[in-house]
Amino acid sequence: MKRALIAALATSLPTLAPHAAGIPLYPTGPAEDSAFVRFVNATDAALEIQAAGSQAKLSLPTDKPSSGFMPVAANKPVKGTLTGADRRSDVAVTVKPGEFATVIALAKNASLVIKESPDDFNAMRASLAFYNADPACRQAGLRAAGRNVGIFDGVGHGQAKRRLINPVAVTVELTCGGKPQGSPRELGALEAGQRYTVLAVPGPQGTRTLFANDALIR
C-alpha cells in the first residue's frame, strides 16, 4: 500500500536522458535534487492519508503516528485527504528540490507543514531534529534529561532545528519557555547514519512530544 501511495504522489520524478557518442555521454546527476514528504498524526485518534486521484491509503495509528519520508516530484503540489473517525480535511504541500516536508495533522481538522533543507548528511553520526508544532509552547527547547544539557533551544512555533549528535542512547526533556514540560522521553540508542525528529505537539495535558525516525520509504 505504501508503494501505491508513493507512486500516486511521485507523479513525475526527474528522469535522466543520456546521449550517444564514443563512451556515450551520460548525465552526471539528476536535473534537480530529490524532494520528500511525510505525514505525522498529532491527534488522539487514528488517521489515514489518501493521495488525491488514487485509492492508495496510508494508516497513521496513534501508536505509530509518523510515516517515513516518501519521494515526490519537486515544485508540484502533493495533494491528499486526511480522514479519521470525525475528520476529513484536504492537505496540499509543494516541496522544493532538496527539501523534506512534514505534514502534521492536528486536532480540529487543522494541519501544519514544517520544511527542512538539511545539509548535515553524515553516516558516522546521528542527526536529530526538533520541530515545534504547538503554539502554546513558546521558545521550545529540548535538553538531555537529568543533565540539564541543552540540545535545542529557542525554537518558535512552526520552526525546526537540526544537529548532528553522537550515536548514543538519549533521553530528552521538553522545555517551553525554559521550563520542563511533561515526562522525559527515551529515544533509545540512536544509530550512526540515521536521522530522527522529536516533535512538540499539542496534547490534552499540555505540550507533548512525538518521536520519529526520518527513514526514507524506498
Binding site: Y26, P27, T28, G29, P30, A31, E32, D33, S34, A35, F36, P71, P97, G98, E99, F100, P118, D119, F121, A123, G193, L216
Partner: peptide, 21 residues
Amino acid sequence: DTMAAYDKSAFPKTWAWQSVT
C-alpha cells in the same frame, strides 16, 4: 563522477545521500 552533477549549478546532495546510503 556519475553523481557529481558537474553541469548543474547546485550539487544534489539530498539525491546523492539517498542514492549512496
